[in-house]
């Protein structure tokens, strides 16, 4: 564990807590893409298959349970909570996310570290996480007003994988085995997808104006 990875995990934890806070306290999921939440639940379900077979550390297991629990409960809130689901804008959240899942699964079947079920599922989760934010970014561009909590959620979610890149660089120079190239290429692609969001997020923060993405 290094400071970059810890910072990344804490940023990731903060992003899910911000989203849970928004949905649980103000009972609203306005501006939140259910499609992205469903993709993230699938990412964690396919990445943490080893949660029962490979014990790494208490921290690792607890964080996996938090990410699994929070992502599935957020999907439940938006789909089934009698108040929250009314604020879900399904007419705007129209990204066909199965068009993301299928290519990721095909790619994982061809490009992976070794051809086992767990490994292909883990690789699929890396590819899927790289593109999981797309429905959310598309929704943000459609809904003109982005409330602070949603903006902060997306910012933290993008920042966490950016911090992981520093973690992979650090591990490359300090450990005998380095993190597999599939992991960090997917992580770099994922972070690059947030590039324009980061730009507009910092612009709005610097000029102290409401965050608005260009149409």
């Amino acid at each position: 564990m290094n400071i970059f990875r810890l910072a990344g995990d804490m940023t990731h934890l903060a992003s899910v807590l911000v989203l849970l806070l928004k949905i649980h306290t103000i009972k609203s999921c306005a501006g939140v893409s259910l499609k992205t939440q469903e993709l993230y639940a699938l990412v964690f379900a396919t990445r943490y298959l080893d949660i029962v077979t490979d014990f790494i550390s208490v921290y690792n297991t607890v964080m996996k349970l938090i990410f699994l629990g929070s992502s599935f409960s957020i999907v439940w809130y938006i789909r089934h909570h009698r108040v929250v689901r009314r604020s879900y804008d399904k007419d705007q959240d129209t990204f066909r996310h199965y068009l993301l899942m299928i290519p990721c699964m095909l790619l994982a079947l061809f490009v992976h570290e070794k051809f086992t079920f767990k490994e292909v599922m883990w690789t699929f989760s890396l590819y899927l996480e790289a593109v999981a934010i797309l429905p959310q970014l598309v929704l943000l561009q459609r809904t003109r007003n982005i409330d602070n909590l949603t903006g902060q959620y997306v910012f933290l979610l993008g920042a966490y994988r950016g911090l992981y890149i520093f973690n992979w660089i650090y591990r490359y120079f300090t450990e005998p085995h380095f993190v597999h190239w599939i992991t960090w290429i997917a992580g770099v692609v994922q972070t690059l997808l947030y590039a324009d969001f980061f730009y507009y997020y910092f612009e709005s923060w610097k000029n102290n104006v409401r965050l608005q993405l260009p149409a």
Partner: peptide, 10 residues
């Protein structure tokens, strides 16, 4: 057991 690289991460 030496974890294969990256699997000890979240």
């Amino acid at each position: 057991m030496e974890h294969s690289s990256g699997k000890d991460e979240l």
